[in-house]
Structures are given as structure tokens and as C-alpha cells.
Computed example of a mutant assay.
Amino acid sequence: MVRDHIGQATHLDDAAERQIPVVNKIEIADIVDALKLGMKDFRRQPLYGLFFGCFFAIGGNMIVLMSFFYNQSHLSYPLAVGFWLIGPFIAVGLYEVSRRLEKNEELSWRGVLGIMWDQHRRELAWMAFVVIFILLMWMFEVRLLLALFLGFSGFSTFGEFLQVMFTTPQGFMFLVVGNVVGALISLILFSLTVVSFPLLLDRSYDFITAMITSVKVVLASPVVMIGWGWAITLILLASMAPAFIGLIVTLPILGHTTWHLYRKAVRFEDKPKLN
């Protein structure tokens, strides 16, 4: 059993030996209710949400600025979009806040950050590796499509890159194909992670079981869950527009919402006894 830095038991690590995760069907009403609960958690403990939201917003701006600094401004858009693919991992602290609020457990910075640090010894670290691997695939796909449609041409300014994108057939095809492939990669990542991170924080299952459970959640309610995935994408894109500032609020709300959606989507039942 894992304990936080103030000595309290926080997770039922023996649950994987006694119970199995079972998927519930999700309705639109469940999404709306989870969103309301997520907003409630943010209002109850706004400092935690603002802290993680600011961390994400600053990180996004740094990545974009570095792309300009190294004369790779044409990669700023895919880098910015790719950066929020790791949102589920960064939101682990938000899941922990919601978990403690739900159970009326003591909430402290030491406890929340300590639990996040403890994950490097647990299966959640492997999920982080999966996310990073998909992020690398995302960037490889961008460079490959740039080479296929635009050759290895360099762009001296971001404005020049935009001009090529919107005034040439090759640039337009790059945008269309790039966004379609990117959407497919995002869908795969969403399916693998929509409940796997909160599940691994809450219970001591292996990361393969967590990913399978996450995919089952999407398959059990494909229209609602994919619709929710698109809603998240649109919210995050809108939040990124003004220098990532919107993420300071939207990221923590979505993080808290994800925890409550996990609680609605997954239940645990005792394993059937073998004769």
C-alpha cells in the first residue's frame, strides 16, 4: 500500500489482486455532470488548478519561443498542439486533488506533489512513456509530411510558412493531410489515456490493463466519448490562441472533469472464483 508524505494510506494497491475494472456505458448527461463536478473542484481548491494550469501555459510558450529561437518557427503549431498531448500526465496532480476532495482526505501541497513524485516507481510512469512515444510519432509525422509535400525547404519567418500553407496547393495538402493524420493520432492517444491515468493513480493495475480499460470505455460509448474528445480538442485549441493563457483555467477544469468521468465510466467487481 502506497502512503503519502504525511503517512496516510492513499491507494488500495491490492485492488488488482481482488477486483477487476468493469466499464459502464457513458451518456451525455454523465459528461455534463462530470464537467459540473470538475468545475466545483476547481472552485473549491483553485490554487492547485491555477498552479498546474500556469505550469502548462508557461511550458507551451517556452516551446513555441524555442522554435522561433532555433529558426524552426514552421514547427511552432505542431509543437504547440503536440505539447498538450501530454496533458493527461501533467494532470495527475489534479486527479489527486479531486480524489482527496471526493474522499474528504487532507489536502496539502506536500501530499499532492509527493503522490506525483511517487508515480515514477509505479505503472503510471510507463503510461508517461507511451504518451512521450506517441508525441515523438506526432513530430515524426510532421517532418515526414513536410518532406513529402514541401521538400526540405526552409522558412525564414513564420509568416513565410503561413503564406506557403494558404497560397500553394502543396501547402494546402500538407495542412489537410497533416490535420487528418494528427486527428487519428490524437484519437488513438485519447482512447488509450482517457481513463488510464486516473485509474493507475487510484488503483495498482498494470499499464496494459489501464490502456485496455480506457479503450473499452471509448468502445462502449463511441459517439459520446469521441464527441467528448473533440470537445476537449476545441476547448484546448481555443485556450491556446491567446498565448496559452486560457489553459490556466481550462486545463484544471478538464483535469478535474476527467477524474469524475473515470469514476462514472469504471467500476470494480470481485474476480470470479475459480472452482
Score class of each variant (00 low, 15 high):
Val92Arg: 01
Phe83Glu: 11
Lys40Ser: 12
Ala16His: 11
Ala34Gly: 07
Gly49Ile: 03
Ala16Glu: 06
Phe129Leu: 15
Arg44His: 10
Arg43Met: 13
Leu79Ile: 04
Gln119His: 15
Tyr48Asp: 05
Phe83Lys: 01
Ile86Val: 10
Arg143His: 11
Gly93Trp: 02
Leu50Val: 13
Ala125Val: 14
Gly87Lys: 01
Val22Trp: 03
Ser98Lys: 01
Val22Gly: 10
Asp33Ser: 13
Met116Ile: 15
Leu75Pro: 02
Phe52Glu: 00
Phe56Thr: 05
Gln45Ser: 11
Leu107Lys: 03
Gln19Ile: 12
Ala125Pro: 03
Glu105Pro: 01
Met62Cys: 08
Phe56Arg: 00
Trp117Glu: 11
Leu47Ser: 13
Gly53Ala: 05
Gly87Phe: 04
Trp117Met: 14
Ile20Trp: 06
Asn104Cys: 03
Glu106Thr: 10
Met62Glu: 11
Leu65Tyr: 11
Asp30Arg: 08
Ile20Pro: 00
Phe56Met: 05
Ala125Thr: 13
Met39Ala: 15
Tyr77Met: 11
Val112Ile: 15
Ala91Val: 07
Met66Gln: 07
Met39Gly: 14
Arg43Leu: 15
Leu107Asp: 12
Tyr77Lys: 08
Gln19His: 14
Asn24Gln: 12
Arg100Ser: 07
Tyr48Ala: 12
Gly114Lys: 02
Ser108Asp: 06
Trp126Pro: 11
Val97Lys: 03
Leu79Glu: 00
Gly49Asn: 04
Leu136Lys: 10
Val81Pro: 00
Gly114Ala: 09
Leu145Lys: 08
Arg110Cys: 06
Ser73Tyr: 02
Pro21Gln: 02
Leu85Pro: 03
Leu79Trp: 07
Ile86Phe: 08
Val32Phe: 09
Ala128Glu: 04
Gly82His: 03
Gln72Thr: 10
Ala91Asp: 04
Met62Leu: 15
Leu47Asp: 13
Ile28Lys: 01
Phe55Arg: 05
Asn71Gly: 02
Gln45Pro: 01
Val131Ala: 08
Trp84Cys: 13
Gln19Phe: 13
Trp138Ile: 08
Pro78Tyr: 10
Tyr48Ile: 04
Val64Ser: 06
Asp118Phe: 12
Arg43Trp: 10
Met137Lys: 01
Val81Tyr: 04
Met66Ala: 12
Leu107Asn: 05
Glu27Asp: 06
Arg18Asp: 01
Phe133Ser: 15
Met139Ile: 12
Val22Ser: 12
Ile26His: 06
His120Gln: 11
Arg121Gly: 15
Ala91Gly: 04
Ile90Val: 14
Glu96Pro: 04
Leu136Asp: 01
Phe52Met: 05
Val81Cys: 03
Tyr48Ser: 03
Ser98Cys: 00
Leu146Gly: 09
Asp30Pro: 10
Arg44Glu: 11
Gly82Pro: 00
Gly93Ser: 02
Val32Lys: 14
